[in-house]
Write a protein that binds this DNA or RNA. Structure first.
Length: 661
RNA sequence: GCUGCUGUAGCUCAGUCGGUAGAGCACCUCCUUGGUAAGGAGGAGGCCACGGGUUCAAGUCCCGUCAGCAGCUCCA
């Protein structure tokens, strides 16, 4: 999945959960220590929401222990259970595949995994695990759980630990010992006849009641390094009760049912083509209508906030990207140059250099600033084939890009304005969000002082807007720090779209200036920002957020009209004409055929409202209104329905109310 | 890019041991005039992803390429 995965840093956080320093440990096997005082791994629903009035510099709340998750009803935290079940799985694998070598096996957001090197089969060929192996492993896990007894813990010195793992042929574990920071206890956990280097904590015994399932197997590099061997990663999940496990599996089904790639074909929204190449999305008319509505909302918001439209070319001379620093810092993601009359050109991976050229086309006065220039700019970036994913990760996409050129005094207000616009836009689509402050990455241009100034400006603006920030160390763009917004969708998954970036570097590189009151030439500051991020990713996410059930204002077809018999078709056509004249997207199902079939087909198309008309409706000039997803019908005068949809459209309502009878 | 898996009609899938292609839905035509989620009959639709190879014979076996899927790594 490209979304809903563990949050950035989650894995690292898990591995860094060390035992409490100074805690005495027995040098022989003892019972497992309790997890009191240990940090636990955040679970599904714990991402902190950015709430007004909280300290913007407060640490990530995800590290804390309080939870309201009703599934946390067991004797130990869910993450502890899952970590223990990963051990249980490892012991089963060790039994079924003698000689297996183990890497890391932590709990993660929705379950756990263990990275394992399975030894070659008897024929000497490498052995890849399959689905049916997972079932075998599960069976073995159940057998071991029954007779494993208590979980025991042992603390050893570094040398003892290494020798112990080396004796068992566990080379990855030997390496893992060295990763444990000095001064921290080195512990082993044991159940039955299997032991594992592990920081714990664990549940006390396996003959408790719990439910688990192994879900998938995939490759994963040892220690996440693509230059190191690839191990096989088995994913699984565990809960305290069968009901919770079943609920989780049902949730996974719901995720699958909302997959934008599936809905993309089912609802005729978009396609991709071998013939066109990977990572390029073709928007069908249905999704074109959705996009057009969003664009028009976007433009009206931007024009109202003082943005002005600009348009820039897709292909420009390579020299421009040399000057901007893209060639030095971004070349891996850029398409190869093309030679036109012996001059090298490039397809743009970003819109900023183009906007800078417009700025430089003449002298600028302080009176003009701030300049807010907006473009729905299509860019192309090379992405490695394995990362492409439907509309969510593509090679060509349209950013809702803007660049604000302003004075240092205006900077905080400008950023605050962007934050307000982002918050307003995201709420319009029913998203909640979290804001992350991303700092200087390793590959960057500009001096540390300049970066510090930019960072301070972002923090100040966030404080002004009462926006809580979560720190994302080293996550900035190469030219400046940024605030990224991650939205939470209807299924609780996180997506990154919006971003606001503070840039002192490109103005420097391009020698941008404006003439100030005193006649001096001064350097403007650039703010790069995207609200939706890219239309591809945003709309792909929107499809899943709504499960294809778009709110009325963006739905491709808003109203379906269904006559009961052919003689009602004229009436239905008349109503259709009225709604169409008012700008509604209407499906008039006046062709021959059965009503039930038409109802089904409109329901499948996720059309918000169906209007059904028979003798009664024609006689009274009413319509029988049926809402998407509901079998109820309300008969109201047509004019009343018309008024309702007008109001819903105007307010961009997320609701789909029944008309008041 | 890496590891594993997959690719048959618009969609979902069947196709046995290698013997020349099948279903349901969707689509088209005709019949059906039906009060709230599939009326009936018929028809059309396939370079079995693409390119090589093995074989008397390949959707089926082998190799390569492309694309997709689950992850890893990286991002709007």
């Amino acid at each position: 999945m490209a979304y809903g995965e563990a949050r950035p840093g989650a894995a690292a956080r898990i591995h860094s959960l060390r035992a409490l320093p100074g805690r005495p440990r027995p040098r022989s096997w003892g019972s497992a220590p309790s997890q009191v005082g240990r940090r636990r791994i955040p679970d599904d629903d714990e991402t902190p929401m950015a709430t007004p009035g909280t300290d913007p510099h407060a640490p990530h709340a995800a590290g804390c222990c309080d939870t309201t998750d009703p599934r946390e009803r067991g004797p130990f935290p869910l993450s502890t259970l899952r970590h223990s079940v990963s051990h249980l799985m490892a012991s089963a694998v060790a039994k079924l595949f003698p000689g297996a070598k183990f890497g890391f096996g932590p709990a993660v957001e929705h379950g756990f995994y263990y990275d394992i090197e399975i030894p070659p089969g008897e024929d000497g060929e490498p052995r890849a695990l399959e689905e049916k192996d997972l079932r075998r492993i599960e069976d073995e896990m159940r057998r071991i759980a029954k007779k494993a007894g208590a979980m025991q813990c042992l603390t050893l010195t570094r040398d003892e630990a290494k020798a112990r793992m080396a004796a068992q042929g566990q080379s990855y574990k030997v390496e893992a010992v060295d990763l444990i920071p000095a001064g921290e206890a080195i512990t082993f956990y044991r159940h039955g006849d299997w032991e594992d280097l592990c920081e714990g904590p664990h549940i006390d015994r396996f003959d408790r009641e719990f439910a688990f399932q192994l879900t998938t197997v995939a490759g994963a590099y040892w220690r996440g390094d693509e230059k190191r061997p690839m191990l096989q990663r088995i994913y699984g999940t565990a809960f305290w009760t069968k009901e919770d496990l079943a609920a989780h599996l049902a949730w996974l089904e719901e995720v699958k049912a909302r997959d934008h790639r599936k809905l993309g074909t089912d609802l005729d929204l978009f396609s991709t083509h071998d013939e066109a190449g990977a990572g390029f999305v073709f928007w069908h008319p249905n999704l074109g209508l959705v996009r057009r509505e969003i664009e028009s909302f976007w433009w009206s918001e931007h024009l109202a906030r003082g943005y002005e439209p600009v348009y820039t070319p897709h292909v420009v001379r390579e020299k421009l990207f040399e000057k901007s620093g893209h060639l030095q810092n971004y070349a891996d993601l850029m398409y190869s140059p093309m030679d036109i009359d012996e001059i090298l050109y490039r397809i743009k991976p970003m819109n900023c250099p183009g906007h800078i050229l417009i700025y430089k086309s003449r002298g600028r006065s302080y009176r003009e600033l701030p300049l807010r220039w907006a473009e729905l700019g299509t860019v192309y970036r090379y992405e490695r084939s394995g990362v492409l994913h439907g509309m969510l990760r593509v090679r060509g996409f349209t950013q809702d890009d803007s660049h604000i050129f302003c004075t240092p005094e205006q900077l905080a207000d400008e950023i605050a304005g962007v934050i307000d616009l982002i918050a307003h836009t995201l709420r319009t689509f029913g998203f909640q969000f979290t804001a992350y402050l991303a700092t200087r990455p390793e590959k960057a241009i500009g001096s540390p002082e300049v970066w510090e100034r930019a960072l301070e400006a972002l923090k100040a603006a966030a404080a002004k807007s009462h926006l809580a920030l979560v720190l994302d160390e080293g996550g900035g763009a190469f030219y400046g720090p940024k605030i990224d917004f991650k939205v939470r969708d209807a299924l609780g998954r996180e997506w990154q779209n919006s971003t606001v970036q503070c840039d002192f570097n490109l103005p420097e590189r391009f020698d941008l200036s404006y003439t100030d009151k005193d006649g001096a030439h001064k350097r403007p500051i650039m703010v790069h920002r995207a609200v939706l991020g890219s239309f591809e990713r945003f709309v792909g996410g929107l499809i899943e957020h709504f499960g294809g059930r778009f709110p009325l204002w963006i739905a491709p077809e808003q109203v379906a009209l269904i006559p009961i018999r052919e003689q009602h078709a004229d009436y239905v056509r008349e109503l259709s004409g009225i709604l169409k004249a008012d700008g509604f997207r209407v499906g008039c199902m006046d062709e021959a055929g059965h009503m039930n079939k038409k109802i089904q087909s409109a329901e499948k198309a996720r059309t918000p409202y169906m209007l059904i008309a028979g003798d009664r409706e024609v006689a009274e000039r009413t319509v029988a209104v049926r809402r998407r997803g509901s079998r109820e019908q309300t008969v109201v005068p047509f004019e009343k329905f018309h008024g309702l949809v007008k109001a819903l459209r105007a307010s961009r309502s997320l609701e789909l109310p029944a008309p008041a009878g």
